[in-house]
Every structure is written in structure tokens, then in C-alpha cells.
């Protein structure tokens, strides 16, 4: 299998606090990997290191053999990683379609002069981007909202829009930060189906953060478990389910 992302012995230290310690992980092409752990285990910090929001204090991250450390978030996105946020971060006062168009901006070629004076590639590319955005919205059943302001969408639709927007950057690896947060079991189930489908349809790898273990078990092929910043286990869902330390970490929680 082809290796996509490699995280090698990475740590993140804030002041004296080790939020993530000696974390090692790899994700292969086409894999659907889960990163779980109780609240405050350092999952989001790990995510932020992968996407360039934080620069790791120690260790190295590579994506398709290229170094991620020290890159800015927008450069990481250009390398082919896209993410969503635990607390939804849409462009809330912009229309739904503009939210997606903005994510396509990376692929626009026309110059500032062409944009401002409206000549050359401007019209063709704008048209192409609009078309692509509408197609993507259709896939996510959001096209009927396309001119609505993003903040006016129902909660579940906002989550879907965030995923659609991340996909518009045409990533090779999609990172989802607790996408099921705030959803009811029915919605969660649909979401998990959708994630599986996206992976196939868009031919990409997915890294999924969840603190609720039962969700991840059903959909992920491999799982990493964080606790207090340390990776306490990794393996197949079956192995994780019966791992003693994991059960302890989730003390009292039912592991189904």
C-alpha cells in the first residue's frame, strides 16, 4: 500500500504542558483511519499540527514524502490536505455557493488585472467554478440553498456544507474533526454512511476524530487512541475494542 501521511515521533509542547507526546502514525492511500480519545486527550492538537495551525515542537510530519513542519495552513491545503472544524467555521455571512467557490479559488488561474477589467480567462473560469460548485452542492443535497446565507442553514446542513467546502479544495486526505458532534443517532448514522461513500467517490483517504468510540468502530479500518497526549493503542477496531488500556481510558464507558 502506498503511504500518504507519515507522522514520526511528533510532540507539541505549550509552555510546560505536553499536549501531544511522541505521536507516531501513518495513513495509506485510500484508508479510513480514526483518531479517538477522551475529551482533552490532544486529538485536536494533533489535527492542528497536521494542518499547519501549530508547528510541532519535536518530530517530523511528511505528506507524500514532503515535509509538513513549518508550513502554513494554506500551504498544507495546497499539498492536498483539507479539514473541517469541531466548532463549525463557515463563512457565515456569505452565500452557500460562495462558501464552496472560495475553496475552489486555489485552482483559479486568471490574474488580478483580468478579474478587475473583466477580460481574458475571467468569464470562462468563473463559469467553470460556478458549475463545479453547483455540482458539488447537488451531491450534498445543498443546491436548493445555494443563495442562502450559510448561517441560516440548519445545523446538520452546516456540517455537510463544511465537508463539501473541504472537498472543493480537491484534497487527497480529508481530516474531519468530530463531524458528528451535536447530531442525533439517525443523523450520525447517515453521516457515517456518507463518509464511507465520499472516500470511494472522491478517491481519497480520511482521518476522523471522534471521542465517541462506538461511531468510529463501525466505519474506520484502523484506529489510533490518544490519552493525555500519549498514543496508548493502535490497530484494527476489533483489537482496540478489547484493548485493556483503552477500556480503562474510557473508564465505565460501554465499548460495544
Amino acid at each position: 500500500m502506498e503511504e500518504l501521511l507519515k507522522v514520526n515521533d511528533v510532540s507539541m509542547i505549550f509552555g510546560g504542558l505536553r499536549a501531544v507526546s511522541n505521536f507516531t502514525m501513518e495513513i495509506n492511500k485510500g484508508e479510513l483511519v480514526g483518531l479517538i480519545g477522551p475529551n482533552g486527550a490532544g486529538k485536536t492538537t494533533a489535527f492542528n499540527m497536521l494542518t499547519g495551525v501549530y508547528d510541532p515542537s519535536e518530530g517530523e510530519i511528511t505528506f507524500e514524502g514532503k515535509r509538513v513542519n513549518g508550513k502554513k495552513p494554506y500551504q498544507v491545503t495546497a499539498m492536498g490536505m483539507a479539514r473541517t472544524f469541531q466548532n463549525i467555521r463557515l463563512f457565515s455571512e456569505l452565500s452557500v455557493i460562495d462558501n464552496v467557490k472560495i475553496a475552489y479559488n486555489m485552482h483559479i488561474q486568471y490574474s488580478l488585472a483580468e478579474a478587475v477589467c473583466r477580460f481574458g480567462r475571467y468569464f470562462d473560469e468563473e463559469e467553470a467554478v460556478t458549475k463545479k460548485a453547483i455540482e458539488l452542492l447537488k451531491i450534498f443535497k445543498l443546491d436548493r440553498y445555494q443563495d442562502e446565507m450559510a448561517k441560516n442553514l440548519p445545523y446538520g446542513e452546516q456540517r455537510r456544507l463544511e465537508i463539501a467546502r473541504a472537498l472543493a479544495t480537491e484534497p487527497k486526505l480529508l481530516l474531519l474533526d468530530e463531524p458528528a458532534a451535536g447530531m442525533n443517532p439517525q443523523e450520525t448514522h447517515e453521516l457515517m454512511e456518507m463518509i464511507r461513500w465520499i472516500r470511494k467517490e472522491f478517491d481519497l483517504s480520511v482521518l476522523l476524530i471522534e471521542h465517541d468510540m462506538s461511531l468510529v468502530m463501525g466505519v474506520c479500518e484502523r484506529i489510533y487512541v490518544l490519552e493525555y497526549g500519549f498514543c496508548i493503542a493502535n490497530g484494527l477496531p476489533e483489537e482496540i475494542k478489547h484493548n485493556k488500556r483503552v477500556i480503562e481510558a474510557y473508564l465505565g464507558e460501554e465499548v460495544s
Partner: peptide, 21 residues
């Protein structure tokens, strides 16, 4: 235009804008 939309995105949410490339 695309650069203009980038500016709007920055106004709306700078962190999200950056992760959109």
C-alpha cells in the same frame, strides 16, 4: 472575483479561510 472572495472569506473567518488554501 476570486481574489475578492478570498478577502470576504478572511473577513468571515480567517482561520477557515487559511485552511481553504
Amino acid at each position: 472575483s476570486a481574489p475578492g472572495r478570498c478577502c470576504l472569506a478572511i473577513r468571515e473567518n480567517e482561520i477557515a479561510a487559511e485552511t481553504m488554501g
